[in-house]
């Protein structure tokens, strides 16, 4: 996992060259941004410049696209990303209270990262696991039937079981 920046940039460039000569090469911009976020964890201005040079698309356009879509993060994230589902089913079953409990515990708002850099909190639209509502996704693991009481325990357990360097 711990690749240095040079290797990551190289991998990104390889990916770009594999798509840019296809028909309608420019249309792969969003795929390229996905790749960049996979590699770096977020899409920085520097990476956008790099993509701009490789794909021959102005950075302004890339910036416009990257900021339009919620999926792309423009700043570094914490070790674990906590997404509280705020879809209808979860909302009806009290997701707002779960979110508040997590906010209170981590002392951060939505889109922010806790001071120790461990958790980034975000709202999710709908994770499509409505049968388990309310749902919280930490990294890519889904926790169902979360309550305001057990939410904090789940956070702690998750970071204990999945220590990341």
């Amino acid at each position: 996992m711990n690749k240095d920046n040079g290797t990551k940039i190289k991998e990104l460039k390889e990916y770009i060259s594999s798509v840019k000569d296809k028909k309608h090469g420019d249309s792969y911009l969003i795929a390229v941004l996905h790749k960049a976020q996979d590699l770096f964890g977020y899409v920085s201005r520097e990476v956008m410049d790099e993509i701009s040079l490789e794909m021959n698309i102005p950075t302004a356009h890339i910036w416009g696209v990257a900021t339009f879509y919620h999926y792309f993060s423009l700043s570094p994230k914490g070790k674990h990303t906590v997404s509280v589902c705020m879809g209808t089913a979860c909302y009806v079953k009290g997701a707002d209270k779960v979110l508040q409990a997590i906010k209170d515990h981590l002392k951060i708002g939505i889109g922010e990262t806790s001071k120790d850099g461990v958790f980034t909190l975000q709202e999710a639209r709908c994770l499509g696991a409505c049968g388990l509502a309310p749902v919280v996704m930490i990294d890519d693991k889904i926790y169902g039937n979360v309550t305001e009481k057990n939410a904090v325990t789940i956070l702690k357990e998750h970071s204990k079981q999945n220590p990341k360097s």
Partner: peptide
């Protein structure tokens, strides 16, 4: 896609595919 609800609308979806 990349997390934009409006992209479920057909013309927006095609804009998105076009990058």
């Amino acid at each position: 896609g990349a997390g934009a609800f409006v992209c479920g609308e057909e013309t927006a979806l095609m804009q998105s595919i076009e990058g």
